[in-house]
Computed example of a mutant assay.
Amino acid sequence: MVNGRELGVDEQAVIKTLVIEGEGRRALLVLKHGDREVLTRQLARHIGVRTVAPFSPTVVSRHFAYLIGGSSPFGARKVMPV
């Protein structure tokens, strides 16, 4: 996966899309700056659920038609909250 440094772009200017599994295997899209982390415990608390976790790469590519490193909030096959 290419990051902002390799492209000569400030990491903060890069927006990354993460596919997160919420309660009931519900898919959520999380957008973050390239220089930031997503703390799953804080995210779960913020959206009012017990736990969240990244979907496995196999599940992401099978259900969302994205290659790992190429997920996008645009053109998704399924409606997912962002």
Score class of each variant (00 low, 15 high):
Met1Thr: 01
Asn3Gly: 05
Gly4Pro: 04
Arg5Met: 05
Arg5Phe: 04
Leu7Gly: 03
Gly8His: 03
Val9Pro: 02
Val9Ala: 07
Asp10Pro: 07
Asp10Gly: 03
Glu11Asn: 11
Ala13Phe: 04
Val14Glu: 08
Val14Trp: 03
Val14Ser: 04
Val14Arg: 07
Val14Ala: 04
Lys16Leu: 04
Leu18Pro: 01
Ile20Lys: 06
Ile20Arg: 07
Glu21Thr: 05
Glu21Leu: 02
Glu21Arg: 14
Gly22His: 06
Gly22Lys: 06
Gly24Ala: 04
Gly24His: 04
Ala27Gln: 00
Ala27Arg: 00
Val30Phe: 01
Val30Arg: 01
Lys32Cys: 09
Lys32Gln: 05
Lys32Glu: 01
His33Thr: 10
His33Arg: 15
His33Ile: 02
His33Ala: 14
Asp35Glu: 08
Asp35Ser: 13
Val38Pro: 06
Thr40Pro: 07
Leu43Gln: 12
His46Val: 09
His46Cys: 08
His46Leu: 15
His46Glu: 15
Ile47His: 03
Gly48Tyr: 06
Gly48Met: 06
Arg50Ser: 13
Arg50Thr: 13
Thr51Gly: 00
Thr51Ile: 02
Val52Ala: 07
Phe55Trp: 13
Ser56Pro: 08
Ser56Trp: 02
Thr58Val: 11
Val59Phe: 09
Val60Asn: 01
Val60Gly: 01
Val60Gln: 01
Ser61Asn: 09
Arg62Ser: 09
His63Ala: 10
His63Arg: 15
Phe64Val: 08
Phe64Ala: 08
Leu67Pro: 01
Ile68Met: 07
Gly69His: 08
Gly69Tyr: 09
Gly70Met: 05
Ser71Trp: 00
Ser71Leu: 15
Ser72Asn: 15
Ser72Leu: 08
Ser72Val: 10
Pro73Leu: 12
Pro73Asp: 12
Pro73Gly: 11
Phe74Leu: 09
Ala76Met: 11
Arg77Val: 14
Lys78Asn: 05
Val82Met: 14
